[in-house]
Computed example of a mutant assay.
Amino acid sequence: MKRVLLVAAVARNRVIGRGPDIPWQVPGEQAEFKKLTLGHALVMGRATFESIGRPLPGRTTIVLTRDRDWTPGHPEVLVARSMLDALAKAATLPDGEVIVAGGAQVYAEAISLASELVISEVPLEPEGDAFFPVIDPALWAESDREHFEGYDRVWYERV
């Protein structure tokens, strides 16, 4: 099975979103996300995909949805009905690792299957309605930290 990484930008209060939006702008964070995810399978929920509006170039997009009638509108996007279905689809791809990229329900389901977390810690406490799961220190240990202007990128490995 391929390595599964959860990648997220998370505020101090665990907020990751408000409606379809990210409630902050941190210069450079999205460019770092692109560098980290290029060449990999990208698993995301339907609402996250729709907020982006298109598949991200250089990555295979797998969209999770329970809506049997939903279609992505892009022939290259794969549709999965469960996290296990998404991981099975990713296993057949030549892409490298599997990157889980949100939203909240997808992170909550995938965290027990992940081998690593890559968290951009944003030093803000915005209002929001989507939250990243609690990172349990009994299960996850910080293995690396990179400082960027406006955020830290923190790598966690499963204990």
Rank of each mutant, 00 (worst) to 15 (best):
L93D: 05
P94D: 15
P94L: 11
D95K: 06
D95R: 06
D95V: 08
D95I: 01
G96Y: 07
V98T: 15
I99E: 00
I99M: 15
V100P: 08
V100D: 03
A101F: 15
A101R: 05
G102I: 07
G102C: 06
G103N: 05
A104W: 00
Q105L: 13
Q105T: 15
Y107T: 09
A108M: 00
E109Q: 14
E109H: 09
I111R: 05
I111M: 10
L113K: 03
L113P: 01
A114P: 02
S115I: 00
S115C: 03
S115T: 14
E116K: 12
L117G: 04
L117Y: 06
V118R: 15
V118H: 12
V118G: 01
I119Q: 06
I119A: 02
S120K: 05
E121V: 09
V122Q: 02
V122D: 06
V122K: 07
P123W: 03
P123Q: 03
P123A: 03
L124K: 13
E125W: 03
P126Y: 14
P126W: 14
G128D: 07
D129N: 12
D129A: 02
A130T: 13
F131H: 14
F132G: 07
F132L: 06
P133A: 06
P133L: 12
V134A: 15
V134C: 11
I135N: 07
I135C: 08
D136Q: 08
D136I: 08
D136T: 05
D136E: 12
D136C: 09
P137K: 05
P137F: 03
P137R: 03
A138T: 13
A138V: 10
A138M: 11
L139D: 11
L139G: 00
W140K: 01
A141S: 13
E142P: 01
S143I: 11
D144H: 14
R145T: 10
H147C: 09
F148G: 02
E149Y: 00
G150E: 01
Y151H: 14
Y151C: 04
Y151K: 03
D152P: 12
D152L: 13
R153I: 15
R153N: 00
R153T: 11
R153M: 15
V154D: 04
W155D: 03
R158G: 03
R158L: 14
V159C: 12
